[in-house]
Amino acid sequence: MREASERRLGDKADVTALLGAFCFFLSAIEYMVPKPLPFMRLGIANLPILLAADLLPLPWFLVLALVKVVGMSVISGSLFSYIALFSLAGTLVAALVMWAARRAGGRLISAVGVSVLGAVSSNAVQVLLARVVVFGEAARLIAPAFLAMGLVTGTLLGLFAEAFAAKSSWYALASSQLAARPGEGRDEP
């Protein structure tokens, strides 16, 4: 931290790119973990998005969400299948929910609450989509397991993000720099 004030992280685009790369990496980790059901994921690839809710303005935040969808789909080989559609819908809705929760909640909400809301809304959207696309009426039978999974993984991921944000000097640097210079950097993606 001694020379932290001299280090520059670059602008919002650079932070987005770094977090996007982080999404790719975590997607690869995620892909290695066995899943009980095809759509059931741990959601660890959402960690950068969770962190970015504090750091990035909405346009860049959505770019990061799209990068995550593409990265995840490329790594799991589902880019040109309907599974990517599930991923896209779930991630975008979760991203908007998390961003709104983060900004509206202010100091009243921590990463845990943001993460839980994001995870459950992502899974809820995917269940709704599954109802339309794959399973029909039977989708409501998988909903409880899905949402409960979101609650658990969302809480764990939120706890991790909170601990990470508290400890990481990179995060402290990024949040102070991006917050200190709102006008600087390329604002529109």
């Binding site: 929760a101 909400i109 921590s110 845990v112 609450g113 839980v116």
Partner: peptide, 11 residues
């Protein structure tokens, strides 16, 4: 770390 009020609302 401590959970904040809205965390409980979210949970």
């Amino acid at each position: 770390m401590r959970l904040r009020p809205l965390d409980f609302v979210a949970l």
